[in-house]
Amino acid sequence: MRPLETTTATPAPAAPAVDLDAYLARIGYEGPREPTLAVLRSICQKHPDAIPFENLDVLLGRGISIVPAEVDAKLIGAGRGGYCYEQNSLLKRVLAALGFEVEGLMARVLWMAPEGAPPRPRSHQVLGVTLEGETWLADAGFGGCVLTAPLRLFADGEQHSPNGAFRIVDASHDGVVERQVQADLSGRWAPLYQVAKGAWAAVDYEQANFFTYTHPSSHFTWSMTVGRTTPTDRFALKNNRLTHRDATGALIEQRDLSVDELEAILRDVIGLPVEPEWRPVLEKVVAWGTPA
């Protein structure tokens, strides 16, 4: 009798490499490189300070690539920012390189949705990081209300971060239980998004990303959204309206900017390398005014 043939299992593909030295220098991190909660907390705080949220390339007609090498060239090498698919795909690879068990998740955005508005599709990438059997939510790509600390995804009650309090509660969509992330805005719990269970592979984000930077219903195609969160302040731009809050979420300033002021804020406060080609887009943004 011929012996049974055996097959060798094909190993899972390795996560795309990332230049850890360059990334950690970009965010100003000089601590340990090990998969601990302390390291995760530090990176989650430093990333949104150093790498702003922005959708300038969408408005410039350049499109958004989530090819790892191109994300790294933009966010690390060129000193630019990006939106969730860029920010969190980079953070995912960084955490994996540090030895964390991390998976991509998808969320349904609720932020600023009018009362009674129809549900939105899942369009926001977030990360689930498993430490000692517990899942932590990490998100470096949610504009001016970005998380600056990992949150326990399946814990009830208030959770604190360097930039305000959050909570995550059970919610449902079409009978399916999801976890809704809420932020404390001066005593009012405001929903950010609902996280669905189930990991997404890197390739799963391709269509969602294409939709986000091309479809007319995506606000990124017709408005400018920019944010930077430091240890003491949150800065957010919606078109030409600047909103400045302190670390507790209390409003410090809100005003509309001229083109020159907008350019200066992008450069000097947000920290972006403003290019001459941006000027026509910024003029258009000021003409649009602040969306309702």
Rank of each mutant, 00 (worst) to 15 (best):
N163Y: 01
E101A: 12
D184M: 07
E283H: 03
A149P: 10
L266R: 03
V169E: 13
L147I: 11
A22H: 02
D19N: 10
P32K: 06
T229F: 00
T214S: 15
P52A: 00
E158N: 09
T10D: 12
G141M: 07
L98P: 08
Y23I: 02
V58S: 02
E101W: 01
R255W: 01
A250M: 10
A96Q: 15
T8A: 13
L153H: 13
P191V: 04
C84M: 03
R241H: 12
Q125R: 14
V102Q: 00
R122T: 06
G28F: 00
A208L: 11
P191G: 07
W278F: 02
R120A: 11
P13N: 04
D156I: 10
T232I: 05
V177H: 10
F154H: 15
T221Q: 14
W288S: 10
V109W: 09
V176D: 13
V146Q: 02
T130D: 12
T148P: 02
L192K: 11
D49P: 00
T212S: 12
D139G: 06
A96W: 06
T243W: 02
D268A: 07
Y205S: 11
H244L: 11
T36Q: 04
V226T: 12
T221L: 15
F166R: 09
L105P: 04
G289H: 06
A292R: 13
H215Q: 12
T7D: 09
L237M: 05
P291H: 05
V58F: 02
T10R: 14
E101D: 14
Y85A: 03
G99A: 07
D174R: 15
L251N: 05
S258D: 07
I252S: 09
T221V: 15
H47D: 00
V67Y: 07
G31T: 05
A292L: 13
E30R: 15
T290N: 05
P16F: 06
V181H: 04
R26H: 00
L151I: 08
A17R: 11
G81R: 01
I27D: 00
L60R: 13
D156G: 12
A155V: 13
G28D: 01
L192R: 09
W200R: 13
A165W: 08
A199Y: 06
L110P: 03
L251Y: 08
M106E: 09
G198T: 04
E277I: 11
G61R: 03
T229A: 07
L262P: 05
L37Y: 03
E277Y: 01
V67N: 10
S218L: 07
F154V: 10
V39Q: 04
G116T: 07
R241E: 14
R122H: 08
F166Q: 10
